[in-house]
């Protein structure tokens, strides 16, 4: 999910025009997303049939293609590690001492029972090169004025054909994202809040994911600490580090 987080982790300089073009907003987003590395501790609150569960983990990420996550809590998941390199995903579980590649059907399963699938996690966040963007409206979300940005996939093969992003007009933080199918059906909604100043950037610290087709309360993602542009040793992103 850290890769997904990239999407949200960005800063914007105050625009010179009252309404920047979609492309400009996206460029600003992408430009600001490219913090070279991110190290964060976070927790995920998952609402299931048996009440909610909290999973804690630490993530090291570099660029868009490489991420390493280690789960720290609860005890059952502790020590489980996940490595994403480009479009491949491996999981290591200490009890089995095995590295398993997640492919096919498994990619569609939910991660730890959340409203996110492995596929959602794997999604390429580089919106500029995959989507065309235009500002379609302005709106108010969480008492903040937002541009509503509509993104249409440039080529076949994106998981979501259409995205809509509500971007804070002042801070340039997205406060809401909606994912649509080809036919225009709303599939998923993400709400971002608790925007905080981190290393001089505005950062949403709480994200709620919701599968709109399913009944339920969705999954909360809360960033506890985050450090940007720290140096991460190269071997972190190798399969050897999983064991």
């Amino acid at each position: 999910m850290k890769t997904y987080i990239y999407l949200i982790i960005f800063l914007l300089t105050t625009p010179l025009f009252s309404q920047p073009s979609g492309k400009e907003i996206l460029n600003l987003i992408d430009k600001n997303l490219t913090a070279r590395t991110r190290i964060m501790t976070a927790k995920m609150i998952i609402n299931g049939a048996r009440g909610s569960r909290t999973i804690e983990f630490k993530t090291w990420a570099e660029g868009e293609d490489r991420a390493f996550t280690e789960y720290t809590n609860p005890a059952r998941e502790k020590g489980t590690k996940m490595l994403k390199v480009e479009d491949k995903l491996w999981i290591f579980s200490p009890s089995t001492d095995r590295i398993i590649q997640i492919t096919g059907q498994m990619l569609r399963q939910s991660v730890m029972g959340s409203d996110l699938s492995y596929e959602d996690m794997m999604e390429d966040p580089d919106l500029t090169s995959h989507y065309s963007a235009s500002v379609v409206a302005s709106d108010t979300v969480q008492d903040r004025k937002c541009w509503v940005l509509q993104l249409n996939a440039l080529a076949e093969g994106e998981a979501y054909e259409v995205r809509k992003i509500w971007v804070d007009q002042e801070r340039y933080v997205p406060l809401r994202e909606e994912l649509y199918g080809k036919s225009g059906k709303l599939l998923k909604r993400t709400q971002l809040s608790e925007v905080t100043r981190i290393q001089g950037r505005w950062f949403p610290m709480k994200i709620v994911y919701k599968d709109m087709l399913k009944a339920g309360d969705g999954t909360q993602f809360i960033i506890v600490t985050i450090k940007l542009d720290e140096i991460i040793p190269e071997n972190t992103f190798s399969k050897a580090s999983l064991k």
């Binding site: 048996r50 059952r76 998941e77 999981i91 579980s93 009890s95 089995t96 939910s110 730890m112 959340s114």
Partner: peptide
């Protein structure tokens, strides 16, 4: 062989 699945609480489980 390794079993991968979900626990009763939705957590991931991997067992040999």
């Amino acid at each position: 062989v390794t079993f991968i699945g979900s626990t009763m609480y939705g957590g991931m489980t991997i067992v040999n």
